[in-house]
Design a protein around this nucleic acid. Structure first.
Length: 426
RNA sequence: GGAGAUGUGGCAGAGUGGUCUAUUGCGUCUGAUUCGAAAUCAGAAGUCCGUGAAAGCGGUCCGGGGGUUCGACUCCCUCCAUCUCCGCCA
């Protein structure tokens, strides 16, 4: 949510930011509701003030045993008027709030202009593509099949498409990645590990910005009115909802593993094959709560944390700075990390590192007191990392000449010392 | 799932329809005393909204929402959380 003051003091700033995003919002309607609301608020406060003095007077009369009937009658009509004005006010306020929850964050000044993902800026490339001379690597689905690492058919049988089963060494490899990610963040990056619920209430989904706008993308349990989390960002960020954080404890950094559930309602036809778009997948998420003055340093730090993992895995990747038109709903600035899949010959997004500034903190009401001044903290998060596409890159990047898979050194301790997954003998 | 109890400021804990402008204690901050500190004494302090150039002024907040009433921390309904006992269970 944006600072409500902006709607009356700096509408042009909002207009400009939304324009950069290519977002359509009826700003004029919101400004008008806000003006109307304040007008009624002034009248309402005045009426309440009158009532307060009147009831005080009644109390005084009653205490001294005098008749207060005339004052009671007068206050009764005052009460009716207050009720009527209050209803108007509540209606305007809820209308304003409903609209405000649908307004995306404004892009940070450093975010480049652009309409779509085609306009994102490559700011870094690490490692390199396999030499053209070497044999073209096999497709990850073929590698997985030969080594029996996963089973899409049976996943589809028991649940549906987009719910794969990792099997045998594939399951272990995926678990190895998650353990490596978590352990590494905790040991080297100063994160505290948390293991959150995978199901959250509606208020939490609003807090981080998934709702009310993206309802159709979320799995919902009707009987309990709870949502399956699309990312650990939701429970972990909302952990501190309605809290005033001690400024001395900032920044607070969490790393959380969770399964992630996404309906991907609007994505049919895009990347539906294999691992590229799943309804359930595993991810380690990094979440930070930062002093507002230091959130952009924290943003760079988070990005570096995610990058380090890819480097340790020996994967060729690049960093994109998203343009204004491609920013996620709540992000003020965002880096995407894309890993290269040599058989697919394309870049795959494996991490998205965002600074939300106070956008989520306003929704979830997370504050801190700095120099005696109450203010909203800044929230940030980044994948570190999601496993499916990393596995794809791993399968396509680390193939051995014999058709097996070389295990990156950092994962070997988690694989019982195994250095290579060898093909079955025929 | 069943029965009962509780939810009040940073914390503890009073308050059962009208000077509640929420008692008190602890903690916090400021000042006095002190070379400094402790102890002691005095004082101050919250959130959010509106209004105003500002000082200030008005409103709001006792788990959330709703109701009764001229007036609700107090009465009623409902939801949530916590605790105790019972049941079930990885």
């Amino acid at each position: 949510m944006l600072d409500p003051r902006l709607y009356r003091e700096e509408v042009d700033k909002i207009r400009h930011g939304l324009e950069r995003r290519g977002a359509k919002v009826d700003l004029d309607a919101m400004v008008n509701i806000d003006i109307e609301k304040r007008k009624i608020n002034v009248r309402l406060d005045q009426l309440k003030s009158e009532r307060n003095t009147a009831t005080e007077n009644i109390a005084k009369l009653k205490r001294t045993g005098q008749d207060a009937q005339a004052d009671i009658e007068k206050t009764r009509t005052l009460g009716d008027e207050i009720k009527a004005q209050q209803e108007k006010f509540d209606d305007l306020e809820s209308r304003f709030k409903a609209l405000a929850l649908l307004v995306p964050n404004l892009p940070h000044a450093s975010v480049p202009d652009g309409r779509s993902s085609a306009d994102n800026k490559v700011v870094k490339e690490w490692g390199q593509k396999p030499a053209a001379a070497s044999a073209k690597p096999k497709h990850h689905l073929d590698v997985g099949k030969e080594l029996s690492l996963f089973d899409f058919e049976r996943g589809a049988k028991i649940t549906g498409s987009g719910f794969p089963i990792y099997t045998g060494l594939g399951a272990r490899l995926e678990r190895a990645m998650l353990n490596f990610f978590l352990d590494f963040h905790v040991a080297n990056h100063g994160f505290t590990e948390v293991s959150p619920p995978y199901v959250v209430n509606r208020a939490s989904m609003i807090g981080t910005g998934q709702l009310p706008k993206f309802e159709e993308d979320m799995y919902h349990c009707d009987a309990d009115d709870l949502y399956l989390i699309p990312t650990a960002e939701v429970p972990v960020t909302n952990m501190h909802g309605n809290e005033v954080l001690d400024a001395a404890t900032l920044p607070i950094s969490y790393a959380a593993y969770s399964a992630c559930f996404r309906r991907e309602a609007g994505s049919w036809g895009k990347d539906t094959r294999g691992f590229l778009r799943l309804h359930q997948f595993n991810k380690v998420e990094m979440v930070m709560f930062s002093d507002p003055a230091k959130s952009y340093e924290a943003h760079e730090y988070l990005r570096a944390c995610a990058e380090t993992l890819l480097q340790k895995l020996g994967l060729h990747y690049r960093v994109l700075e998203l343009c204004a038109g491609d920013l996620g709903f709540g992000a003020a600035k965002c880096y995407d990390l894309e890993v290269f899949a040599p058989a697919e010959e394309r870049w795959l997004e494996v991490s998205s590192v965002s600074n939300f500034e106070d956008f989520q903190a306003r929704r979830a009401n997370i504050r801190t007191k700095i120099d005696g001044k109450m203010q909203f903290i800044h929230t940030l998060n980044g994948s570190g990392l999601a496993t499916p596409r990393v596995l794809v890159a791993l399968l396509e990047s680390h193939q051995t000449a014999e058709g097996g898979l070389r295990i990156p050194e950092v994962l070997q301790p988690y694989m019982g010392g195994l250095t290579e997954i060898k093909p079955k003998k025929k």
